[in-house]
Design a protein around this nucleic acid. Structure first.
Lengths: 247, 247
DNA sequence: ACAGCAAATTGGCCTGACCAATTCAAAGTA
DNA sequence: TACTTTGAATTGGTCAGGCCAATTTGCTGT
């Protein structure tokens, strides 16, 4: 088998120390970072890549699976491997298990959540249209007497909608992940305690948030958000325990 | 070949739709999240896992490579696969290419960086010891006349040291990643423009930061950090261009 | 022009083999 | 006894080549 190869004039020599699959991952990552491969593009066939890079298909597959784990590639049987950028499946899972490994606490999560959401609100206050904010108001008017589980879902949706108005891609991505991590815990709590009313507090908070946004009052929105997120009594008992032990 | 299997009483039936490698990833992730596998632990042999789960070693390897891409596992030839939690190799690369895919701008990055570092400073001001802050001061006193590249490296180290004092695991992790993304760009700039003095500004800022921390003055530290990070003229021309086009 | 079907394509998975780094225990030595 | 050496066993890295299953493609007949 050959050892040196060229693809697009780029050398793919068998470097010392690096695994085949790593080299392939690097190559594809590079193509992406430099814009030669873009969202939706189809990668060459596994068999073809294997041949071009003079490696076995097994190595190529390991690379593809790695990229898929990073959420950069999506495999479709019978069709091909495609570049994607789903922020959900992406950073999400890695960050989740990583966080579990790291003895991070629930409080860590909530703190970051508040940080990101407040940042998004800054953007909203300075740049969002009145219509955008009105839309948030509509999202807010859901049934606050529905089942707890359903309600939690809508609550998440409300907050997600806020953050989606941020102009910062990274903030939107990370918030998605952080909120999901929190939701996992929330779900767990719901399983155990099942139901419980008291969503009036939530309703009140949500109204206050939208109101403050409408007034473009950052101080107010910051205050409400901090208490809404950080002082939620559902979390109080668990704040300082490692997230890992909660889910 | 068998289809149903049990490991630790947990069923691993061949579910519809899920890939073998995915099932294995899920299984291991789960073991981690629930604390049954911890940092430093060694995974079972690839051959053993393959046998236990009734799949081929190829599938197991795809799963292991996926976990490695997420930074959760580290493979060592001849030795084994180990649970790790290196925040560097971890979230870092995925986030990097993902960010490249997403049209995120350099400004997005800097904004988030400021956010995280200021959050860390809050922690420092309320909880760090005077000794910790003195240590920062020592880190700061490096040669501000060294080569630009060397200087950039020390600058990063200084800021990293600040954030490492945060009690929030997630903040520390994310900052590492964000800073690295920025450094990639910075490195690029250095390659092009090569050298240039003017590090007195940096020196001044760093002094101000440590001073403000020493005084436990959050307002001051916030102000200095924001201008230090956001108003750096090196970035000015590139702020609104997609990060992808910069590296 | 369209619907239906069959072949080609493409990813998913398996077997079984060999290499290379590491580990480990037995044998040898000081 | 304690340390070193060394070779076998272990374990990840890679390969070849095959079969299956989903999808795509293109031909065919209406």
């Amino acid at each position: 088998m050959q050892n040196a190869q060229e693809i697009n004039g780029r050398s793919l020599e068998k470097e010392e120390g690096r695994l085949n699959s790593e080299r392939i991952v690097d190559y594809i990552e590079n193509e992406i970072i430099h814009g030669r491969l873009r969202k939706g593009d189809k990668l060459p066939t596994e068999r073809r890549m294997a041949e071009e890079m003079s490696v076995s298909r097994a190595s190529v597959r390991e690379a593809v699976k790695a990229l898929e784990a990073m959420g950069v590639v999506k495999s479709v049987q019978g069709s091909g491997n495609y570049i994607t950028d789903d922020p959900d499946s992406t950073i999400n899972r890695p960050l989740c298990t990583l966080f579990a490994l790291s003895d991070g606490t629930l409080d860590n999560l909530l703190q970051l959540r508040a940080l990101l959401e407040i940042e998004a609100c800054k953007d909203i206050i300075t740049a969002a249209s009145d219509e955008d904010i009105r839309e948030l108001g509509r999202l807010m008017s859901y049934d606050y007497n529905a089942a707890a589980r359903e309600q939690a879902k809508l609550d998440s949706k409300f907050h997600m909608s806020i953050v989606q108005l941020s102009r910062n891609t990274l903030v939107r991505y990370l918030y998605t992940t952080v909120l999901r991590l929190i939701d996992v815990y929330r779900e767990r709590v719901l399983e155990e305690t099942e139901q419980r009313g008291e969503s009036n507090l939530t309703k009140r908070d949500h109204e206050d948030i939208v109101l403050a946004l409408r007034k473009r009052d950052l101080t107010a929105v910051t205050q409400v958000l901090r208490s809404h997120i950080l002082l939620n009594k559902d979390y109080r008992d668990a704040l300082d325990r490692p997230y890992r032990t909660l889910v």
